[in-house]
Write a protein that binds this DNA or RNA. Sequence first.
DNA 1: ATATTTACTTTGATTATCTATGTACATAAA
DNA 2: TTTATGTACATAGATAATCAAAGTAAATAT
Lengths: 111, 111
Amino acid sequence: MDFSKGLMAASTKPLILSVLKRGDSYGYQIIQNVKKLTGGTLKWSDGMVYPVLHRMEKEGFITSEWQGKPGEKLRKYYSITERGKQELIVEKEQWNFLHGVLSKFWEQSLT
Amino acid sequence: MDFSKGLMAASTKPLILSVLKRGDSYGYQIIQNVKKLTGGTLKWSDGMVYPVLHRMEKEGFITSEWQGKPGEKLRKYYSITERGKQELIVEKEQWNFLHGVLSKFWEQSLT
DNA sequence: ATATTTACTTTGATTATCTATGTACATAAA
DNA sequence: TTTATGTACATAGATAATCAAAGTAAATAT
């Protein structure tokens, strides 16, 4: 699927927050995770995801910490914050609201 | 509701196409219509909607025609094109797909 | 007369998007 | 050994989207 620009972007934030709510993770893993969870449909590029993570951290929705066992590459693990959880609730409400409005149209004329 | 930027933008295109699929309309009416249909939740500004209409026309999803009965203000009526209908189908698929992915997360952890 | 509503337009500062490119280490293959 | 591939993160920068704000102007209501 080739997503229209706006939608793709609008989904990254809530999806990342949802992934992190399940448990801490790092950029590369989040990308693989989302790819797997969507059966390969959502293929996020790293250059697309990392800036979003940086921004979300700056906004206080997530925090980061470098971790690495000896002999392993360093990974930047992200955790969702309380503020992030609140934000996720809001985003969820907005998604559901808009989906509801659109669904109302789409139910009526079946195309 | 104070929508996060991305989402609001991502919904204008499919919503406008959905409105126009019901029947021709003009900018001002579309704004009022959406406001009414969402119980006042979605309050689009004109400066936000008109440029979107112009872009969508340039992209061939809608066409416009000035109309006005004598003694009435001229209105620019927009119609959805075949290409616009196709686009709406695609947007609908994408919305449903993403909503499905997000819903899967949101079902599991009830927050 | 004056204010409000209707109706459309454009500007422009700000921000977001995402491809492309770069670094660097680890591991597997040739 | 050297080459390729996979892992892991970062950022620059061209392109484009966003939306408030300000403008025009006619119609209607007060």
